[in-house]
């Protein structure tokens, strides 16, 4: 092998480049793992459905609410525990989760989704930065 040191250096550099993202993810700022979300500023403890369900299915809940309100003209949601809520993103959801930047956005940014709710819906004035 002619330029042995050079070849070795190149192999090292390529390997380092391949491994770097994984090391960076372990130790650096981009630590993996889901982000921690801020609790509602108002101190509410209970969402419309259990937290685990909401974490996974909040989109389904919103879609169901949307169809019920817009297409069927129904406004009241009866939760699995029997409690009733007004089906509204801007008053019911944001009524508690008014900290959009520390709640909605933090997770949506993490998973790289860009919901288009706020292109039309207007974010309530108090609390939370509308964007």
């Amino acid at each position: 092998m002619y330029s042995k040191p050079l070849v070795l250096i190149i192999i090292m550099v390529v390997l380092a480049g391949l491994v770097a993202p994984f090391i960076y993810a372990r130790i650096g700022k981009g630590a993996s793992g889901p982000p921690t979300l801020a609790a509602p500023p108002g101190g509410e403890k209970e969402c419309v459905e259990p937290t685990a369900y909401m974490r996974r299915h909040h989109v389904d809940v919103l879609m169901k609410w949307r169809d019920a309100v817009v297409r069927e003209g129904r406004l009241t949601y009866v939760a699995s525990n029997g409690r009733q809520y007004v089906m509204s993103l801007t008053t019911t959801c944001i009524g508690c989760h008014s900290n959009k930047a520390d709640f909605c956005d933090r997770c949506h940014d993490y998973v790289r989704v860009q919901p288009r709710c706020w292109e039309c819906h207007t974010f309530p004035e108090k609390g939370g930065a509308a964007r």
Binding site: G73, L75, T90, R116, E119, C120, H121, T122, P124, E125
Partner: peptide, 25 residues
């Protein structure tokens, strides 16, 4: 002046009168 009680629309969407369904409700 955006009325916070009602959504706006987005680019690329058709709109029209709805007989104020939100007020009738």
């Amino acid at each position: 002046a955006i009325d916070k009680g009602y959504p706006t629309r987005a680019k690329g969407v058709v709109e029209k009168c709805s007989f104020c369904d939100e007020r009738l409700a």
